[in-house]
Design a protein around this nucleic acid. Sequence first.
DNA 1: AATTGTGAAACACTTCACAGCC
DNA 2: GGCTGTGAAGTGTTTCACAATT
Lengths: 217, 217
Amino acid sequence: MPDSKVPNVAIKRLPVYLRVLEDLNKADVSVVSSVEMARRTGFSSEQIRKDLAYFGAFGTRGVGYSTDVLIERLRRILGLNRQVPAVLVGAGNLGRALARYNLERHADVRIVVIFDNDPLKIGTRVRDLDVKPVSDLEREVVRRKVRMGIIAVPAAAAQEMATRLVKSGVRALLNFAPLNLRVDPEIYVQNIDLSIELQSLAYYTSQVPGDRDFDDR
Amino acid sequence: MPDSKVPNVAIKRLPVYLRVLEDLNKADVSVVSSVEMARRTGFSSEQIRKDLAYFGAFGTRGVGYSTDVLIERLRRILGLNRQVPAVLVGAGNLGRALARYNLERHADVRIVVIFDNDPLKIGTRVRDLDVKPVSDLEREVVRRKVRMGIIAVPAAAAQEMATRLVKSGVRALLNFAPLNLRVDPEIYVQNIDLSIELQSLAYYTSQVPGDRDFDDR
DNA sequence: AATTGTGAAACACTTCACAGCC
DNA sequence: GGCTGTGAAGTGTTTCACAATT
């Protein structure tokens, strides 16, 4: 279960701010206003100011925010000031794509081991990462002090993997399997379910410009 | 831009209900209560009843919901009563994984063409789908009356692809590229940004059980 | 003059609680 | 007696509007 008074949705916006700030920084922009950040992120400037203000007063009135300072603060708030290790369970199509994607960017959150239970996959590599047997899960998670797990296994195996990850010390899960994981409420679970995304998108494609309501027909 | 008075978040829950109902139906359960659906989805029973009630009175007081009836209704509400075609732009690691995943399940939303601009990828196949050149995008989208697009190209190419999809008649986008797409506000855009998910997850792994607040230190 | 930081107001969404119906 | 459907209350989140600051 998350935190005190910072809206959960605000936390999800912080990495967006961080990305924009890093782009600005690369372009040698050293100060930015909330209005300019709003233009680049699509969020309102008030929302951006409020989100940042939950954590302190990082800006200068009449001036704006120092990109350097704000990057530093956001990194610290998100826990990205040190590199964050994560484990990936599942080396199928999706798992391998996720691993490659993550390793391509010199990411602050980094997958450090991949597990699978398919003997054909164990011992293979994705980029320079070994695919290890699931039986090594507990040992590796504990040894590497991993607190983040990514689940990309079929639904039938996902609950067991979640339980084992949590038992080994993982505190946050990114779950791609299409089911409702049951874990201690203190554990943060973010689900990404591609079928659900596509199916809910279908609703919006069927809504015609001149909106007719759905009641019971 | 979505609809009138149905909360946007409610639409995202409908496919979850649909999945649970289909599981029940396969197990020959013909009637289900909102409490049982709550148990299986993790949403509250009141929320489920309210979500369904936005669209009509589908249940029977004292009894529950007929799984058959509710499946039929949800399919119709979501626009899944006919098969929904989608196009995928980007045949990289992620794009191919998405396509395979989608094609594996006999999905109601189905990717019907893949586009890429890499000559090495054009002409290859993912399962039984051709990868076509992006220059064919407009023609194919119009010809097949596609209203849903999935963007899995690098950020630098994503805006152009979005603009071209929308110009060709696409009304909803699932965007995996890490940027804020600018499209007509009538178009529904769902972003899935893996880096952002991982970075916001990091926040929760750094929150220790005995919660200390972040203020300005 | 410009821009932040923030209470107050508005809006959105969820939960409560119970009447209505089977 | 059990379960839906729904106004009303409660909670969460966003927007407004402006004082404070440079």
